[in-house]
């Protein structure tokens, strides 16, 4: 490459840089949101684009998993970048303890009354509003095994065909919690279930970190069963194997995702307007029909075919055995420590 060509490249890069910076400044009214990376094209179509039309503003979207985005919010605490975020219930409590978020003024949410009661104030501190649930249970090959209890996964004839979620994933602690219930040793430190999993460490196929891996492993018949969140269920049904969703006698666990408003945000009202739009019956119905988010709005009516692929209905939502956020936060470091000792060794 000649110097002239290189100069051109640098000039072009510099111009591109300035354009990006300039474009950001030109917009007057922007709302910055921080969300999960899941199904962004559908969200854009169903939520973001219509909202931009309604508010006459610009939406800037940050994506990533819950903990990484929380770490960034923490670093930007003095000068917040995002106005509202959707994160897990436990991370919402962590954000509230770290002083990163404000109370949600629910009087400004016209759709608030339509939410399931469990979603209205998940952490009982007024800092967050639930917008979707998911059940976590076991997806398994019904031709190879029969699952009636979470403990069945550790049976000698099954364990070598099971993928178990790593403790650092969102599904890890809930699955361990259910195993604890099955073993009748459900202490908050999850010691008994972690030890039980650790004892089967050599047999268990993998301790997965990315749920996306599981479809691949199921297709290769590397695994027959894995605890998964309902939101990853759909691809399993397309594999051409008889795969069933377990209804263990201990019940199903799961999680709730919530919306929070950043402390020090300059767009408080716009953020509330956006939250209100997201929990509206119209948006929640469309997101459910695309099998993206199970609704938290009780006015949403779904066909059986759709409902079957989601976690639908107030009764179902209420029946999920969720780990209380405070328990999750206070024990997280201890769970990882025990896990590293029993499973990572």
């Amino acid at each position: 490459m000649t110097i002239q060509a290189m100069n051109k490249v640098i000039l072009a890069s510099g111009a591109a840089l300035m354009l990006t910076v300039g474009a950001a400044e030109a917009q007057q009214k922007t709302l910055t949101i921080s969300v999960y990376a899941l199904a962004q094209d559908e969200y854009k179509q169903i939520v973001y684009d219509p909202f931009e039309k309604i508010c006459g503003c610009k939406l800037v979207v940050e994506t990533g998993n819950s903990v990484e985005r929380l770490a960034k919010m923490e670093a930007n605490k003095a000068n917040p970048v995002v106005d509202m975020a959707v994160i897990s219930m436990a991370d919402a409590l962590a954000a509230s303890r770290a002083g990163l978020i404000d109370k949600v003024d629910t009087s400004k949410l016209s759709n608030f009354g339509k939410l399931y009661d469990v979603a209205k104030d998940p952490n009982k501190d007024g800092m967050s509003v639930g917008y979707t649930f998911y059940a976590t249970s076991i997806a398994y090959r019904s031709d190879k095994m029969k699952i009636d209890s979470w403990a069945d996964l550790l049976k000698p004839e099954y364990a070598s065909h099971v993928a178990w979620p790593n403790v650092t994933t969102n599904q890890g602690p809930p699955a361990l919690y259910m195993l604890g219930l099955a073993l009748a040793k459900d202490t908050a430190d999850l010691k008994a279930p972690i030890e039980a999993v650790g004892a089967k460490k050599a047999e268990i196929v993998t301790f997965y970190e990315k749920s996306s891996q599981l479809v691949q492993l199921m297709q290769q018949e590397e695994i027959w069963a894995a605890p998964i969140g309902r939101f990853t269920w759909a691809p399993f049904t397309k594999l051409g194997f008889p795969i069933a969703w377990a209804m263990p006698k201990e019940g199903q666990t799961g999680g709730m995702n919530v919306m929070v408003a950043t402390k020090g945000s300059k767009n408080k009202d716009l953020a509330l307007q956006f939250m209100d739009y997201w929990i509206s019956t119209e948006v929640q119905t469309k997101l459910a029909e695309k099998l993206i988010d199970s609704p938290a709005n009780k006015d949403v009516k779904l066909s059986d075919a759709i409902a079957n692929n989601l976690t639908y209905g107030e009764e179902t939502a209420k029946s999920l055995k969720l780990i209380p956020s405070a328990v999750a936060l206070d024990n997280r470091a201890g769970w990882i420590k025990t896990w590293n000792e029993k499973v990572g060794q």
């Binding site: 990315k210 749920s211 996306s212 990853t232």
Partner: peptide, 9 residues
């Protein structure tokens, strides 16, 4: 990576 967090097709 974010895309593959949920789906790996």
């Amino acid at each position: 990576i974010a895309y593959m967090e949920i789906v790996f097709d």
